[in-house]
Every structure is written in structure tokens, then in C-alpha cells.
Design a binder for these strands. Structure first.
Lengths: 245, 245
DNA sequence: CCAAAAGTGTTCAACTTACACCCATGT
DNA sequence: ACATGGGTGTAAGTTGAACACTTTTGG
């Protein structure tokens, strides 16, 4: 007996990446052509997702999606939201699409959503016959299904998490400069920080380790590289109370 | 045709309440007796939950559960977590129980979890033939299914949310004293605050409105009552950036 | 030598923390 | 009168925000 997908339970992954300039997300093209004249009936974008196997844990399904896409495992992954309204797949476009890919368009699908963090440069994406790639979150409009809502929630969840935990490093290479780190916070929160004040702040994070290595081949003063030490973070981090409101 | 429950999709509600002394949660007794000798086979506690109807939104199912329990609508409600591992209902106890209440024990059930906030005193609970009541979150041990995990996640979600938004008032009566408010924060975060510093902090929250009314019948200096003004909060609140890490 | 980004300190205001006594009420 | 919790201020230390110039490299 083959592994079977559960018709009512799926997982969607919002995969964020940072290219030193902006916050990106992986999206997949969704095209349907008119069988008669070949004109495009649908042309838009979806998040990456899939139904779960009957005997598969939710998080394992998310890991499977990530692995099939990138060939990597051990990627940062966090559940943040679940969408499951009966009408969420009922627009005409979505019904046409479900028909095309061989799903029963009448089934109600609850989708458990995860966000996950990658360094854009380190991977090459692949996914069967659909075109897949990185898109700026600011340009990610006109998404299929309720994926626009999911993406909006994912960005808020990422921001909230990033206020408390140093997960930004998951989107940076092993070695990075302080300017790159600052830019990362700036694009996630869509604000700008003062360079000196930012450096003062991060200099208190003793899990941010300066290396003896510097940038090469840049036509300006080369920046020192830093690295994130998970051990130091886990040793020294302590709970904080801060209730701002 | 009768409304039917979806066999694979349920909602659980973690209903928190504050009684001026501790943080409480609503739990329901789960008893199974041996049909021969009448001895208890199972005696433990569950969260409140139910399967969703086929055409019912997830959040509407949560509202329905709350309404059936308390007779109230408009209760604070927030989705925080979804659990759906294939094994989550597979312990012997849980299988016996599912059989007893007429569910198919083989079905996989994804449960979307909400937490919700109430003032303990303002309601009387009712729920068919099962015994239901408030339990201190500290004593809430030995929960059925994976409800212990769900409760743990709910407490963390409540704490995180309470750092940013003034939702604590949902667990207080319309009029409350500053000491009651302080106690609420103390029990949710399991810490103690200095009375003067706490008052200094909340005095900056201009949506906390002092009333001309005071406590009566207390054998000490009567405390002034305050009330929470949602309008003032929504007018004056602004986003904050704070990334502590 | 020019362009480009790296790196670095000080000042002022705001906030956090620690801490102790008198007040109003009921019994 | 006493027990109980209500209510208040100050000083020291810490943190946050604003702000400009010199350095190092490649071209």
C-alpha cells in the first residue's frame, strides 16, 4: 500500500530568506492555460505546501517540503498559524486549479503554517515542473488561496519572535558583518537604525563573536566578520520581563 | 440533513481566568468506570473542546464552545497553536475514552487551539453531564490526551501577548484596583513586582482611567477603582521596537 | 585622489531599581 | 488600639537617542 495524503490536512511553509538587501520569500508559479486557445486562465503565485501523509507528523511534513525544495535538513522551522475556513479554497480560480492538480475541490483543507529561515544564497531551488523562486515580500502580491493572509501573519510572527530570540542568524551566512546584521533587522521591521547605536546594542550580546577575518575585494574599508555562537547564547541568555504595552 | 462534525478537525479552548489570587483554567472531568465492578478505570481532566461542523469556521467553533459553556459571546479569543500528530490520541486511556463517547478511535484529529480570557466570578459553568470547573494552572497536572502540552503552550502564548497588549483586563471585572492588576501580572508571569514601581509604570498607561469610586466594606484603607478604556488605548498606542534578545 | 562603507564617543533625557513610612478603614 | 492593605517620592544607575568625523580599501 502506497503512502496516502490526508485529504483534509495540509502544511504550508513560508520560507524567508535575506539577500543582504531585502526580505524574500519562496513562491511557486501557478499557471492554468485554456485547453482550446492556450490563453492563460490563471497566472499567480502560491506558497510552498503539501498535504500530510496519513501517518506523518505535521512538523515532519514541513521538513519534507523543505527538504524536497532545498535538499537541506535542520532548517529553522516554527509553527505560527492555522487556517481552515470552509471557504478558503472556494474561489473560482482555486477550484479550477484544484481540479487541474487532481484534488477534490469540495474537500475542506485545514492548513497548518510554518515559517522557516534560510540564507538565500546557499541553496538552489528545485520543484518538478513549476517555476519556483525568491520574491521580495514587498512585491508578493496577488497570492493564490488565502496565502496573502498567511504571509502577512508569518511576517508578524517573524517580527515578534525576532524581538526575543536571535533567530536572524538563520538567514545569514556563517560569517557576516555588523552592517549585514543591521540591514537584516531593518528589512524585517521595515525601519532604519542608527549605526552607532545599533553597534552599541549588539556589543552587549556576547554570543556575537568577532573573528580575525575581514572582507576581501571590497572597494572600501573591509568590515570585520562576526559569527553567532549558539553555545554562548544558551549559556548566558536569561528570561526578561519587559511588559511595555 | 443534520449538522455533522468533521471527524478530523477539532478545536480546543484553554480558558484562563483570574480570581484575584491565581491564574485558573477551565477543565472537565473525564471518568470511565469498569462496566462489571464499577471501579474507576479513568479519572482525569481535559480541556474544553469539540470537533468542528463541516461548514463551520475554526474560530466560530471556538466561539460556540465558549458560548455553550458560559452563555457569553464576545469573549477574548486567540489562536495560538495546532497539534495534530498521528499518535496524539493513541494512548490506551484515550482510546477507551474515545470509544465510550462514540468517536472512531482510529481517526487522526488535528486540533486547532485557542486561548481565551474570562473573569472567573462573572460566570457559572455548565456542561451536560460532565463535571466542569476552574483549576489553578499550577495544579493542572495529569491532563488527558496531549492537553498538558497544549496548556503549557497556552501559558507561554498568554505571557508573550501580555507583554505587548493590554489583554489582562479581559480577566478583571469592569472596575478593579491597581493591586488587583499587579497581582494579575504577577500570577501570569510567576514573579513579584515592587508596588511603587508597578504603579509608576502603569501611570504611564493613559488608557487606565481612575474612577471616583472606592472599595467598600474592606477592613483597611479602601482602594480606588480603575477601568480600562479601549478607545484611549487604540487612539494612543503605537508600535514599539525593543529588540531585547 | 576619489568613492564607498567601516568604525568609533559623548551628551542629554528617559527609564529602571531599590527602598520606608503614613493613611483610612473595620473589628 | 490594632491589623490590614492603600498609597506615595527620591536618588543612583542604566539605557536610549541624536549626532560627525576619520579610516581603509579598490579603482
Amino acid at each position: 500500500m502506497e503512502k496516502q495524503f490526508h485529504p483534509n490536512i495540509s502544511v504550508d511553509c513560508v520560507i524567508f530568506g535575506f539577500d543582504f538587501k531585502k526580505l524574500n520569500v519562496i513562491l511557486v508559479e501557478r499557471n492554468v492555460h485554456d485547453p482550446v486557445n492556450g490563453a492563460k486562465q490563471i497566472s499567480d503565485l502560491t506558497l510552498t505546501g503539501n498535504h500530510v501523509y496519513f501517518d506523518e507528523k505535521l512538523e515532519d511534513a514541513a521538513k519534507r517540503i523543505l527538504f524536497n525544495l532545498t535538499g537541506l535538513s535542520g532548517i529553522y522551522l516554527e509553527q505560527f498559524f492555522t487556517t481552515g475556513d470552509p471557504e478558503r479554497l472556494k474561489s473560482v480560480k482555486d477550484q479550477v486549479w484544484l481540479q487541474k492538480i487532481g484534488k477534490d475541490p469540495r474537500e475542506r483543507v485545514v492548513s497548518v503554517c510554518y515559517f522557516s529561515l534560510l540564507n538565500c544564497d546557499e541553496i538552489t531551488l528545485k520543484m518538478g515542473n513549476r517555476k519556483i523562486g525568491w520574491y521580495s515580500v514587498k512585491e508578493a502580491k496577488n497570492l493564490a488561496f488565502d496565502h496573502g493572509t498567511i504571509l502577512g501573519n508569518a511576517i508578524k510572527a517573524l517580527q515578534t519572535k525576532l524581538l526575543y530570540e536571535p533567530i536572524g542568524f538563520e538567514m545569514l551566512p556563517e560569517k557576516f558583518t555588523l552592517t549585514q546584521l543591521q540591514k537584516l533587522y531593518e528589512v524585517v521591521f521595515d525601519v532604519e537604525f542608527d549605526k552607532r547605536n545599533f553597534r552599541k546594542k549588539v556589543s552587549k550580546m556576547n554570543y556575537l563573536v568577532p573573528l580575525d577575518e575581514k572582507q576581501k575585494g571590497v572597494s572600501h574599508k573591509p568590515a570585520r566578520y562576526y559569527t553567532f555562537s549558539r553555545e554562548l547564547y544558551e549559556k548566558n541568555s536569561s528570561a526578561m520581563f519587559n511588559f511595555s504595552i
